[in-house]
Amino acid sequence: MASNRNRGSQKSGARRAENNRIYAHPLPLAFSNPEPGSTFGYVLGLLGFSLTKIENPHCEGVFDPATRSVWITNERDSSILWRRGFFGKGDLSRSEPSWLARQISARKAAGKYMTAEEIREKRRAERKQFKMDRAAAIAKAAAEAEAAFAEGRQAAPAVIPSGATWKPQQLGETAELPEEAPDDKDEDDELEPLKDVEHLQLTLQEAFFLVWNLDCLTVLDPQTSEPLSLQQIWKAFQNVHCVPPELPVYTNRFDNPFLVNYAAYHYYRSLGWVVKGGIKFCVDLLLYKRGPVFHHAEFGVVVIPVYEDSRDQESSPFNLPNANTFSWSWLSTINRVNSQVQKTLILTYVTIPSSSRVSTDLLSSPACLAHYSVRDVVLRRLIPARMRD
């Protein structure tokens, strides 16, 4: 038993070391220092100079207004942006673009063994069957107890399946696994080679952070395939929330959804958190200390816009989520969901500057973001079973 545990820990340690090597860079920009012991570097260091080099990957993406995202179709760029900061997600995957690897694995399996997706679906089916069997056993025991009480006799002991003792039903003798094909080499040779049709999909907040703060992403126009300038990107990302964008009611608005969401995204990214979407847990953002490869998200963030001037909210053409007063039942529901998955809920209040105080001319550039303020409130739900100590 001890040897098995040692092998398991070694395997886990080896996998952890491999992840640390692959995901060593927290951002797409990589920094390299001169070789240690270099006399020239030592002299320059004494003079106050640095020989640190910045490696900029210069990735490219295509702006897609329909999905409000930027598509990274180059395999090299997708790998860099995911492995250096966990930016974006595969459009055919849950997180990392792994569609091609999963298809290759499924083709190799071909009935010989189960893939990871098949194992997951099997476990889900087993859990569903266990809940159904337990509910049926409970209903049967209740009916037996009522019948025994009516007849004036003692009820027979009920057997309720538990997670530790319950086992899924085994296949019958007739339901055997299919026999292995005699020789399918020729069939494998005839299979067409797989083509990677997946792309990395960046949110507008992620794309603008890479463009404006790191200068490592070039966004191309979907019509002309020409690079967009920072000014064009700034306007295009706001216009996707304006339908149609030429209406005067949408112009010069500090409460544009892109600006509000980017203020919250930039706030946490600048503090070193890995920020991902949190729709799965009924929140706007998830905060990871290092990334989804290493551990689960520690915090769930709900972005709450707050108008500095109530008149701006009355005249707003945007229906910002959570801008109006929310109910305690809504808040308790979201808090309960995140508590069950061991996440701490954060209410992030983004204050929208008043148009009467701040000139709307600042909206022509990202300089207007300096007038937004972000405050966060941590909300925890009391769970007596976990918090007795």
Rank of each mutant, 00 (worst) to 15 (best):
L287V: 07
S373Q: 09
P65C: 08
V274N: 03
F237R: 05
R134D: 02
E314M: 15
S93N: 06
S69M: 04
H296V: 05
I334M: 00
D133G: 10
L382Y: 14
P244G: 10
H296F: 06
K289Q: 15
N74H: 12
N335C: 03
V249M: 05
V275Q: 01
A370C: 10
G13Y: 12
T39H: 05
K235L: 03
A264G: 06
F318A: 12
V240Q: 00
A137K: 06
C368I: 01
P28M: 05
L363R: 01
K276A: 02
V358I: 15
P257G: 09
F63D: 01
S355V: 04
W99P: 00
A164G: 09
V240D: 00
G61Q: 04
S354H: 09
A264H: 02
R5H: 11
E173G: 08
V275K: 01
K235Y: 01
S332W: 02
S98L: 08
T333I: 02
S339D: 08
T218V: 15
N252T: 01
Q129M: 12
A109E: 14
R15A: 12
Y113S: 14
I352W: 01
S38M: 10
V302I: 15
L100Q: 05
L363V: 00
E118A: 13
S225L: 14
E121Q: 14
L220I: 07
L214R: 03
K11F: 03
H295K: 13
R311Q: 14
N252L: 00
K128F: 08
I352T: 02
P227S: 05
H199D: 04
W99N: 07
E173N: 07
P227H: 05
R388V: 08
R107E: 12
W328E: 11
A297I: 05
D186V: 11
V211A: 01
T360L: 02
R5K: 13
E126T: 03
E308K: 04
E180A: 14
I304G: 01
W99L: 11
P305H: 08
A367C: 09
F237H: 06
Q238P: 02
F149A: 14
S270Q: 12
A385Q: 12
K195H: 08
V303N: 02
A158K: 05
S327C: 07
K89M: 08
P257N: 10
M1W: 11
R107V: 07
M132A: 15
R153V: 15
Y23T: 04
I304C: 06
W212L: 12
P26V: 05
D312H: 03
